[in-house]
């Protein structure tokens, strides 16, 4: 019973606090000041709750607009244009403005899915297992198909059995390690990305 009482009391208190009639009689305009509620008085942009902000670069096209990403308790709460950048001066296109929507999209995956050969559905597998399994597959495929010289003696030192597609949307550092490991380390030649699409 007390809960209902307290809720009732809160409502009455709230009503009296925001009651406009007395303020109206006291001369405030019923269309503005008198009608203002406590919510409006204490309203602040939700960015004030952010405990961290950083500059990121829009992940969509290559114009390179700068964005400010605000986070609270380790979760992004908003992304909008960075006014200091000479490239976009705070503006963003529809895709750039949707960066926050992308980061918090319900379709995002946060676990590894695995499909066994001839399987008919996804299974969940731990990340570490997947990494080990992939490393083993890479080694096995490389060992079975590595060619150091062509029949006529020409040096090749490559494997044609593995390929990699990706990374026009990846960081330079990521692309660098991909080329370094796959080409410089494993001897793969089929290494491409969207630059040709």
């Amino acid at each position: 019973m007390t809960k209902i009482h307290r809720r009732f009391a809160d409502r009455v208190a709230g009503f009296v606090r925001d009651w406009s009639l007395p303020r109206q009689i006291a001369g405030e305009s019923p269309y503005s000041k008198a009608a203002e509620s406590s919510l409006s008085q204490n309203l602040r942009p939700r960015l004030t709750e952010a405990d961290k902000v950083g500059t990121i670069i829009c992940p969509y096209c290559a114009v390179g607009c700068s964005q400010l990403a605000y986070a609270k308790n380790g979760r992004i709460i908003h992304v909008e244009g960075d006014p200091r950048s000479p490239i976009n001066q705070g503006t963003l296109c529809p895709k750039g403005s949707a960066t926050f929507g992308w980061l918090t999209s319900e379709r995002r995956l946060d676990h590894v899915l695995y499909r066994a050969p001839y399987g008919e559905h996804w299974e969940r597998r731990p990340l570490a297992w997947a990494m080990d399994r992939i490393a083993w597959l890479v080694k096995q495929t490389r060992d079975e198909t590595f060619v150091d010289e062509l029949p006529d003696g020409t040096l090749v030192n490559h494997t044609l059995a593995m390929a990699s597609l990706g990374g026009a949307t990846l960081d330079n550092e990521e692309n660098y390690l991909i080329k370094k490991l796959f080409c410089g380390g494993l001897g793969m030649v089929w290494i491409e990305n969207q630059a040709r699409v």
Binding site: D18, S20, Y31, S32, A34, A35, S37, S38, L39, S40
Partner: peptide
């Protein structure tokens, strides 16, 4: 809309804009 609103939820802010107060 502001002139019609019977509860004062719709009001003119200190920035002369028209806003629906969600708590009213």
């Amino acid at each position: 809309c502001l002139e019609a609103c019977p509860t004062g939820a719709l009001f003119r802010t200190e920035f002369d804009t028209v806003v629906v107060q969600q708590d009213i």
